[in-house]
Amino acid sequence: MSTLVYINSNDGLAKNALEAVTYGKKLGGDVNVVTTGGADEATLASLGEYGAGKVMVDRSVTSNDPGQIANVVKAAAEATGATTVIFSHDFIAKAAAPRVSVKLKAGLVSGAIDVPEGNKVKVNVFSGKAFGYVEVNTDTKIISLLPNSFQPEAGGSACGVEEFNGNAGEAAIKVIETKKPEGDIPLPEAELVVSAGRGLKGPENWGMIEELASELGAATACSRPVADIGWRPHHEHVGQTGVAIRPNLYIAAGISGAIQHLAGVNGSKVIVVVNTDAEAPFFKAADYGIVGDAFEVIPRLTEAVKNFKAAN
């Protein structure tokens, strides 16, 4: 049994890359990593600590072109005789893994949350409201692992890194411009998230949310109506029709907890809800609840976090 893990190293090694290698190790058997991007050799060698036996790097691919990435992954899967190919279910996997599936004629399971049992893989379905078990009917399977389902486990030692020519071909997609807001923590990657909804009454009241987020080192999010009326930027909208997130901690203030909102956040490990209405549906999905006015509770919580940080 041989496993191939694809990771993108354009911006160094993200946490979800380490999760994918750790997951590969849990399957047993050899783990090879194939990567595109610019990370240096020492950085790539460190993947050995998470279970990689070898890293193959194709430096000819410098963008996120899914066609090129799919070609490289296919070549690497054939070169290593991989029976399982692993991606982390991020925006790159969503674009490239389906192409690899067709190229290899290998069944793709996306959003896996556990290691396979035989050829069955557990996934989230109905936006996290239920689990499904997907059976793969082909000899080779492709698994796209839901981020934040496994924590990276280091323990091994650095591994070898070799240059690999995956016959990537030409990029079909030309990048014209990249816009990344400076300093913000990207929501899909954030481990802590502070979110607010219509209960905050207006955009001028978000200062206290930003203050709590910055004190915690958290990203900020919001409910859909808040993004729709323009109180907050669209990329902060979480839920069924916005971003789905799985942070370790989700703090929701002034959000009622409609089912479509929950669909995007119910994968969070711990949920804290602040709402004036004790009957708000969100309390049913919460781990810790505070019935109270966000305008009083949030600044008080920020103070408490400050005091906690000073004492620790």
Partner: peptide, 10 residues
């Protein structure tokens, strides 16, 4: 893309 948007041509 992670933490932003990219404009692409094809």
């Amino acid at each position: 893309i992670v933490g932003g948007v990219q404009t692409v041509e094809f």
